[in-house]
């Protein structure tokens, strides 16, 4: 695979529907649905999965650090399986962007070996029906996942997110943060489950879920669950869903920021951790514009 940014520049135009040149990607990115990484590098590789690409599977290299931006872009009904194996002592900085429209079902599974680390930022910026399932199998001692997911839905979007974390070894850590924004008649449903098996002492299972409703009829439903079968653990979860917090708004207004800007700023706080990972990419601003449109009520 060509290194970023040359690879990215050459294909950037094809990520977006206004330039209909996706066929290049279908053959250019994967032939066998697998990707291997070379150098231990901080630069972020980009992989695009479109309607026609097959399922996706990667393994990190032992002891190596890898950064990957995985873009799933489709506008046809699509089912896709993504599997990621984090080998011993490896670290993966993963950004996932779900773009496009129509119906998509994604099943994304992660398996962790000892001392592996996943830093994950996810953006769901689609229109239509999205079913996104994530499974984290922490099967190596000291393995950890930190996930910040941002989802924005508008119009008649239906978004369903399922996250399951299994702590199968001692001293494993999970920290799942979900930031949800719903506008128009959109509906977002999130089910997040953390399970710590007996004997997995020293483990930590954290969940934090926030949601903003930007219209009277938008809906966000969150169902957080902890299943703990061990005493020596740290686990907590919480969910806060509602309109924009009036005290946050007052604070920003009291500094002279206009009501419109203040609301934008508060909403930007939901997407910030995801977008900041795209700040150096040529298409980050386009995704940001798409998010802006959806928070302002765009249907597609």
């Amino acid at each position: 695979m060509m290194p970023y940014p040359n690879y990215l520049k050459s294909l950037e135009e094809a990520f977006f529907p206004e330039i209909n040149n996706k066929s290049v990607l279908k053959s250019a990115v994967f032939s066998d649905g697998k990707l291997s990484f070379g150098d231990d590098s901080d630069s972020m590789a980009t992989v695009v999965l479109t309607d026609g690409t097959s399922d996706f599977a990667i393994e990190t290299d032992k002891g190596k650090k890898t950064a990957l931006h995985l873009v799933v872009w489709s506008d046809k009904e699509t089912d896709k399986n993504i599997s990621i194996v984090l080998k011993e002592n490896s670290r993966l900085d993963l950004v996932v962007s779900l773009l496009g429209k129509g119906t998509i079902r994604i099943n994304q599974a992660h398996a962790f070996e000892e001392n592996s680390v996943l830093e994950s930022r996810i953006g769901l910026v689609r229109s239509g029906k999205t079913e996104y399932t994530q499974k984290y199998l922490l099967d190596g001692r000291n393995a950890s996942v930190n996930q910040i997911l941002f989802a924005v839905s508008s119009g008649n979007d239906r978004t369903s997110i399922t996250e399951k974390v299994y702590h199968n070894k001692p001293d494993t850590k999970s920290d799942l943060n979900n930031n949800l924004v719903a506008n128009g008649k959109a509906n977002i449903y999130l089910e997040v489950t953390g399970k710590i098996e007996k004997g997995m002492h020293g483990s930590e299972c954290l969940q934090q879920n926030r949601g903003i409703l930007l219209s009277e009829i938008a809906e966000i439903e969150v169902d957080p669950e902890l299943l703990i079968d061990e005493f020596d653990v740290n686990a907590r979860h919480g969910a806060a869903i509602g309109q924009i917090n009036e005290e946050e708004l007052f604070y920003l207004l009291s500094r002279g920021i206009t009501n419109e800007e203040a609301r934008k700023l508060i909403i930007s706080g939901y997407m910030g951790p995801y977008l900041e990972k795209l700040s150096d990419t040529p298409f980050g601003s386009r995704i940001a514009n798409r998010i802006d449109a959806k928070t302002q009520g765009a249907d597609e």
């Binding site: 604070y251 920021i257 930007s268 910030g272």
Partner: peptide
């Protein structure tokens, strides 16, 4: 108040 996700500088 705390405003998560909004950096001090941007604010």
């Amino acid at each position: 108040v705390e405003v998560p996700g909004v950096t001090n500088f941007d604010f």
